[in-house]
């Protein structure tokens, strides 16, 4: 389909246009059926997507992710049995361990990416999604939704999960590794947070925030 698009004049409503995030090409704003995606005709980036019931779905999944997050942090992640001795560790122990070696840069990096940024991301989303699902816009919504977007690429739960799996397999020939409750909760957390990301339609959230101003 060829889209005829004339440059917007001063009098035209800019809300009728979208620009591609990746290549800046201007498009007429697509109106999408649920479950369809509009892509940039030049570079293929996603311009907009129609997502069904997105507020409730992403809210539910984010709440579930937060519950899993609490479990992940409250229970042991991995245990080790060797020569009659046993140790176990939590996710926080893992993040803080390297302070014993004075490697504070790594401590901060791991603390931020495995714990703080994911948590802040969930909390910022919930702060917006809970009132929005009930038809209200919380104060500072624009700030917190922007913050959620900034935190999300620095939360690395999926990578952390891979690190845990690699550690379990690697240690298998050294000692007996006992996966803790937190490993399974970490799987749940990863699933829910990924699914919440796919369920959410940020364009609609921004439209609601914008119309409340």
């Amino acid at each position: 389909m060829s889209v005829s698009l004339t440059p917007p004049s001063l009098s035209q409503d800019l809300g009728k246009f979208v620009a591609c995030h990746d290549c800046d090409l201007l498009h007429a704003k697509p109106s999408l059926a649920v479950g369809t995606v509009a892509r940039c005709r030049r570079c293929g980036a996603v311009l907009a997507q129609g997502r069904p019931d997105h507020l409730l779905r992403s809210l539910t999944l984010t709440l579930a992710a937060l519950i899993f997050f609490v479990i992940v942090n409250a229970f042991p992640l991995l245990g080790l049995k060797l020569g009659g001795r046993e140790t176990s560790m939590t996710l926080l122990d893992g993040a803080l361990e390297l302070r014993n070696y004075g490697m504070w840069d790594v401590v901060i990096l791991v603390l931020l990416t495995s714990l703080l940024f994911p948590l802040l991301h969930f909390l910022a989303l919930l702060y917006i999604l809970i009132p929005m699902a009930m038809g209200r816009i919380p104060p500072g919504a624009a700030f917190w939704f922007r913050a959620a977007g900034l935190f999300s690429p620095w939360g690395m739960i999926g990578v952390y999960m891979l690190g845990v799996l690699v550690a379990v397999v690697k240690l298998a020939d050294l000692a007996t590794v006992v996966p803790g409750v937190a490993v399974f909760a970490l799987g749940g957390l990863l699933f829910c947070s990924t699914a919440a990301g796919y369920a959410l339609d940020p364009a609609d959230v921004w439209r609601r925030i914008g119309s409340a101003r």
């Binding site: 991995l78 080790l80 993040a95 390297l98 690190g163 845990v164 550690a167």
Partner: peptide
């Protein structure tokens, strides 16, 4: 961001394997 795996792996191993002379992993 998948390069972070090695960092997470070392911190996990160091926190878990602390059995004195029997077995210890140091970063």
């Amino acid at each position: 961001h998948w390069s972070m795996v090695d960092i997470f792996l070392v911190t996990l191993l160091a926190a878990l394997v602390k059995m004195g002379t029997l077995a210890t992993i140091e970063p």
